[in-house]
Design a protein around this nucleic acid. Structure first.
Lengths: 111, 111
DNA sequence: CTTGAGGTACGATGCAAGTCGTACCTGAAG
DNA sequence: CTTCAGGTACGACTTGCATCGTACCTCAAG
């Protein structure tokens, strides 16, 4: 079965404020950082991120990311797929995804 | 008199989370967009931004921007100067300031 | 059919953040 | 000196948001 894509804003309708608000949360940013690091942009499951929060809260965070236009959520009924909207983000905000890789200076250096 | 520079984080200590949280607010982002658009990086006064908020709230917002490492605040006693930390930002998060110029598609023109 | 895992909807809660009122400080101009 | 504009400190208020509890839905495997 193909599953239907849950709606998000169009590529030209991405709002910088919504994007920054979405990326302001640590959990959502860690998801985006993982997605941005995988250049194959393969579809991922919701619990492949090992977020230390309840599933209700995960639903909330993924919705925020989708409504900001950063990811697609594919609904399969009893499970859900996550995919980065790399092309749309790069078109609208070029360089944003690269920024997520600069999270810590020199990779995972101690503080 | 020269005025003393209020303290902010070092260039290598800029935190992406703090930066995104700072840019999530519309008023702070409008300030940063204005600063980023001025390539001369001249020092500006606090009320040269015409923010539609009280001066106490302005004090709050400029402090958040300074503590995120995005601006310098120069204290002259009875007034204050604001300057963009362009070099530090570009070194730590290259492309971030360019992103602020992409606020609305096609410059500032409505569609 | 029943069961169980993945996910959502709704509401409640606790905390962080934006806003402003009052009072006070600093320095320049009278 | 006094006056006044720019700015800060503190507190109160309000809103937004992250979090989770309870209940319900969907689908696949028994």
């Amino acid at each position: 079965m193909t599953g239907k894509n849950l709606v998000g804003p169009g590529a030209d309708a991405l709002d910088l404020g919504a994007v920054f608000r979405a990326l302001a949360d640590e959990h959502r940013r860690s998801v985006m950082t993982e997605l941005a690091a995988d250049r194959s942009d393969s579809e991922r499951g919701c619990n492949s991120f090992n977020l230390p929060i309840s599933k209700q809260t995960q639903t909330h965070h993924f919705r925020v990311l989708r409504e900001a236009g950063l990811i697609d959520e594919i609904d399969y009924g009893n499970r859900k797929g996550i995919r980065l909207r790399r092309a749309d983000i790069e078109k609208r905000f070029p360089g944003l995804l690269t920024l997520l890789g600069a999270e810590s200076p020199g990779g995972t250096a101690p503080r």
